[in-house]
Simulated assay, not measured.
Amino acid sequence: MNLKELKEELSVKCKNGVAFLSSAVVVWAVMLMILVSKFTLETKNSLILWSTALLFPLAMAFSKLFKAQWKVDSNPLSILGFYLNIAQLVYYPIVVWAMIRRPEEMIIFLGIITSAHLFPYGWYYNTKVYMIMSIFMSVSILLIGLRTDVETLWIIPLFMISFLVILVVLLYKDYMRKERISKS
Rank of each mutant, 00 (worst) to 15 (best):
S23I: 06
K13G: 07
Y125P: 03
L41C: 05
R180C: 03
Q69F: 02
Y121F: 15
L35K: 06
G81A: 06
T148P: 03
L55S: 11
L49M: 14
S74A: 06
A116G: 11
G122S: 11
V150I: 09
V12T: 09
L41T: 03
I166T: 15
L3P: 00
W28E: 03
E5W: 02
I79N: 03
K4W: 01
Y130I: 10
S184V: 12
N2P: 02
I155G: 06
L110W: 00
A53G: 12
E8W: 05
I34V: 13
F66D: 04
K173A: 11
K67W: 04
V168E: 03
M133E: 08
L35V: 06
L171G: 02
I108V: 15
A87R: 08
K13R: 15
T148V: 15
R101N: 12
A29W: 01
I181V: 15
W123R: 02
L35Y: 15
S74E: 15
W123A: 11
V129C: 03
Q88E: 08
A68Q: 01
I155F: 07
R101F: 15
M133W: 00
T127R: 07
I135Q: 00
S115F: 06
F82A: 10
S23F: 09
P157Q: 08
S63T: 10
Y91W: 07
A68F: 04
A24C: 12
K15L: 03
E42R: 10
Y121L: 13
A53Y: 00
F163H: 04
L77M: 10
S138M: 08
I94R: 02
L110D: 04
S63Y: 06
S23V: 05
A116M: 14
S162D: 08
W97G: 02
S134M: 05
N126R: 11
K15D: 09
E5Q: 15
W28H: 13
K178W: 01
C14L: 08
I113W: 03
I166V: 15
F82R: 10
A68I: 03
M131D: 12
E5S: 14
A116C: 05
